[in-house]
């Protein structure tokens, strides 16, 4: 996984970079399965490796698929990144260990979800109960974000077809309705 991330750093062919980012997503999905998050792995495999790769390829088709040559290493950002990473790693020294059942994250609301969701909500999949019932407001907000993003894409680049409708030599715009 780190290998794909680092090769994305070096490669200048953007097509290869986009493909690697799909592979990176699949690796992440495997990691999620290992860590028991089956729903998340499912989403990552469908979204990260599927849809976002298609969208990035679509963007490449509209722009350029080669990156301009640049310096291999820029030292200013490198120092900044290493510094930030160092601080973050220093911060993890007090974190609970991996797989620790007594970690603070497991001692509050999660127990209620695991013990009561079967009788209070019903579905055996706790993730679904929490997503749709306990945290319904949250999911409503997330759905609104997806909606807004789609509207945003339409507003930013969807308008060109309206301009093109005025020009007679564009045959394919007739079929789709315009924004």
């Amino acid at each position: 996984m780190a290998g794909t991330a680092i090769s994305m750093l070096w490669l200048r062919d953007l097509f290869a970079v986009v493909m690697l980012s799909g592979i990176y997503s699949l690796f992440a999905a495997v990691l999620y399965v290992v860590m028991d998050a089956v729903d998340v792995a499912f989403t990552e495999a469908a979204v990260g490796a599927g849809i976002s790769t298609v969208l990035m390829l679509g963007t490449l088709a509209l722009t350029k698929s080669k990156e301009r040559a640049h310096k291999k290493i820029s030292y200013g950002p490198l120092v900044l990144v290493l510094l930030t990473g160092g601080v973050l790693i220093y911060g993890t020294l007090d974190m609970p260990r991996y797989g620790d059942a007594n970690a603070p994250i497991h001692s509050h609301v999660a127990n209620r979800y695991i013990e009561k969701s079967g009788s209070e909500v019903g579905p055996p999949n706790i993730v679904t109960s929490v997503l749709a019932s306990y945290r319904g407001y949250d999911t409503l907000g997330e759905t609104a974000v997806v909606f807004t993003a789609a509207i945003g894409v339409l507003v930013i680049i969807g308008r060109r077809r309206k301009n093109k409708k005025d020009t007679p030599q564009a045959p394919k715009t007739k079929e789709g309705s315009t924004s």
Binding site: A61, T143, A150
Partner: peptide
């Protein structure tokens, strides 16, 4: 839960297809 999940599914499917159409219309 059924209604809400169905709503989420419709919005996500609609959003992804709309975004794809918009990008494809550019090419």
């Amino acid at each position: 839960i059924l209604l809400v999940e169905f709503g989420v599914g419709m919005t996500v499917a609609g959003a992804m297809t709309t975004i794809f159409y918009t990008f494809a219309a550019q090419t």
